[in-house]
Design a protein around this nucleic acid. Structure first.
Lengths: 116, 116
DNA sequence: TGGCATAGGGACAAAATTCTCCCCATGGCC
DNA sequence: GGCCATGGGGAGAATTTTGTCCCTATGCCA
């Protein structure tokens, strides 16, 4: 974590949630891990638009924030598995709602976005 | 809206939702507008950490995405009022859930975040 | 030998977001 | 006149986030 020049505001729950959840791929990572895609390479294939680098960074942040846990198997080639912690699981229903809202309004949203 | 050099991914509902909802202050703006704080100056006082500029920009985006609507009263000094559209109101329960999760886990989150 | 896959990370470049500073206009008040 | 409040926006810099490229290491397979 780099030093921030402008400190984060942490006034309310929303700020706190934002710190742990709002990264370009974090929500998706949690979602896919919940669905049983545990290994980094699997996740990268699931999210091909993300760069490996950033995926790794965000996985590490999720781990630091105790939303996921990591098991490293001492084998060759290396094998790593992530899974949701109990804490992380509490976010899944919310993430589900977010995705559903987007899906349900998909058509409308696409029009609105392409217009801008 | 500036031209993007890297096009947005719009594969799933989550991507679409992200476009309309994930700006530094957008969620809060929707929330406060729902609570009856309608005028720009009110909102700025409610969110003192945000710069006027960015608040205006994000309000405009929310409007373009039809989550809020804007009424301009032709008076001096100028008066403007925002309110949620029916579409925007459908997001309020979800935003409530996000905030609640953060509030409920506030203590834990603060520790985790300050550790990093 | 060369290439594949696995997982990870440093250095740096690019892009996107946000912030700061300045400006516009009007009417009321001291 | 000078200052307040209102709502808005441009230019450009600062900051943060994300991406690209290259490197590590091991074993398997053609």
């Amino acid at each position: 974590m780099k030093e921030r020049k402008i400190p984060l505001d942490l006034n309310c729950g929303l700020d706190l949630l934002g710190v742990v959840l709002f990264g370009k791929w974090k929500i998706r990572l949690l979602w896919f891990i919940d669905q049983g895609h545990k290994r980094p390479s699997e996740l990268q294939r699931k999210i091909p638009d993300a760069s490996r680098r950033v995926l790794n960074i965000q996985l590490k942040e999720l781990e630091e924030h105790e939303l996921i846990s990591k098991v490293i198997y001492p084998v060759v080639p290396p094998k790593v598995e992530y899974s949701l912690t109990e804490f992380g699981k509490t976010l899944i229903p919310i993430i589900g709602d977010l995705g559903s809202w987007g899906d349900e309004n998909q058509e409308r949203l696409r029009k609105l976005i392409s217009a801008s």
